[in-house]
C-alpha cells in the first residue's frame, strides 16, 4: 500500500500530521475548557458530589437577579466605551504616524510602549495619576482649584469607571494603531494619490478611500480588544466601584467562596459572559459583512 501511495496523498498526509499538534492543543485545552464550563454551568460536577445535569437553576437564579443585569451592563459599558474611544484615537493616529515628520521613529516607539508592559503596570499608573490623592488631584490643588482631595472629581472606585476605561485605552491604542499602521503600509498611497488627482477633498479621501481600506484592520483589532475588555478582571477589581462588580469579578468572587455550589454559580456567570460576548461579536461581524457587500455592490 505504502509503495503505491501517490505523492499527492503523501503530501496531504504530511499536511495533516503537521496540523495535528496545533489542533490537539487548541481542541484539547480550549475545547475542553468550553465543554467542561458548559457542563458545570448546567449542574454537572460529580467531583463536588453534585450531579443535577441538566439543570438550568444556576442560570435562572442568575438571570432573575437584577444585580446580574446591572453587572452585565457595567461589563458591556466598560468594554464598549474603551473600544470606541480607542478606535476614535487610533484611526487618526495611525494615519498621522504614516506621515513623514521629525523623529517619527521615536514617537511611534514611545506610543507603542504600553503594548509592551503588563496591564498591572497600567493600573499602577492610574493609581498614582488619577486617584483623589494622585498627581492630577495634587496639581489641581497646586493651581488652587481644590483645597481637599475629596473635591477632586472621583475617577477611580466609581461605577462611572473612567479609570478602568482610561487604562484600557492607554494599553489598547498602541495595539490598534500598530495593526492599522500595518494595513496602511500595505495598501500604500496609490489610491489616495489617485483620489487627489481626481480632486477629492481630504475629508472625502478619509471617508471614501482610507477608511474603507483599513476597515478590515479596524474590525479585527476592535474585535480582539472588545473581547479582551469583556473578560478583563484586574482593572475592574482594583479600579472599579465595588458591589455590584463586573461579571469577571463576580465570577471570581463566586469561585473564591468556600461554598461549592457558588462555584457552579460562578460557572454560569462565565458561560453567560462568553455567550454575551459571542453574540456581540457575531452581530458585529455580520454587520461588517453586510457593509462590505453593500460596498461591493456600489
Amino acid at each position: 500500500m505504502m509503495r503505491t501511495a501517490s505523492p499527492a496523498f503523501m503530501q496531504n498526509l504530511r499536511d495533516v500530521v503537521e496540523m495535528t499538534p496545533l489542533l490537539v492543543v487548541l481542541l484539547g485545552l480550549f475545547g475542553g475548557a468550553l465543554v467542561l464550563g458548559l457542563l458545570q454551568s448546567f449542574g454537572y460536577a460529580p467531583w463536588f458530589g453534585i450531579n443535577e445535569f441538566p439543570t438550568t437553576r444556576y442560570f435562572e437564579r442568575l438571570w432573575l437577579s437584577s444585580d446580574f443585569w446591572f453587572s452585565l451592563g457595567l461589563t458591556l459599558y466598560y468594554a464598549f466605551a474603551a473600544t470606541l474611544i480607542g478606535l476614535v484615537i487610533s484611526v487618526p493616529l495611525s494615519i498621522a504616524l504614516s506621515k513623514r515628520f521629525k523623529a517619527s521613529r521615536l514617537f511611534s516607539a514611545l506610543i507603542r510602549l504600553p503594548l509592551m508592559v503588563p496591564y498591572t503596570v497600567g493600573i499602577a499608573l492610574a493609581l498614582v495619576m488619577l486617584g483623589n490623592g494622585g498627581l492630577l488631584s495634587r496639581m489641581s490643588a497646586g493651581l488652587g482649584l481644590i483645597d481637599d482631595p475629596s473635591q477632586f472629581v472621583q475617577i477611580l472606585k466609581t461605577h462611572g469607571g473612567c479609570g478602568i476605561i482610561l487604562v484600557y485605552v492607554w494599553k489598547q491604542v498602541p495595539f490598534m494603531t500598530l495593526n492599522l499602521s500595518a494595513v496602511l503600509a500595505r495598501t500604500g498611497d496609490d489610491t489616495v494619490e489617485a483620489a487627489m488627482v481626481l480632486g477629492a477633498s481630504s475629508r472625502q479621501i478619509f471617508w471614501r478611500v482610507t477608511l474603507p481600506q483599513i476597515m478590515p484592520g479596524i474590525v479585527s483589532a476592535s474585535l480582539i480588544c472588545f473581547a479582551f475588555n469583556i473578560g478583563a478582571f484586574e482593572a475592574p477589581l482594583i479600579l472599579g466601584g465595588g458591589y455590584p462588580d463586573t461579571l469577571p469579578v463576580l465570577a471570581w468572587r463566586y469561585f473564591q467562596d468556600a461554598n461549592y455550589a457558588f462555584q457552579l454559580q460562578g460557572m454560569a456567570v462565565v458561560v453567560s459572559l462568553a455567550l454575551v460576548s459571542g453574540l456581540f461579536l457575531a452581530a458585529y461581524l455580520q454587520g461588517y459583512r453586510r457593509f462590505e457587500r453593500a460596498r461591493g455592490r456600489v
Binding site: 468550553l34 479582551f228 462565565v270 459572559l273 462568553a274 460576548s277 459571542g278 461579536l281
Partner: peptide, 8 residues
C-alpha cells in the same frame, strides 16, 4: 482571542 480570558 475572541472569548473572554476570565471564562477560559
Amino acid at each position: 482571542l475572541l472569548l473572554p480570558e476570565a471564562a477560559i
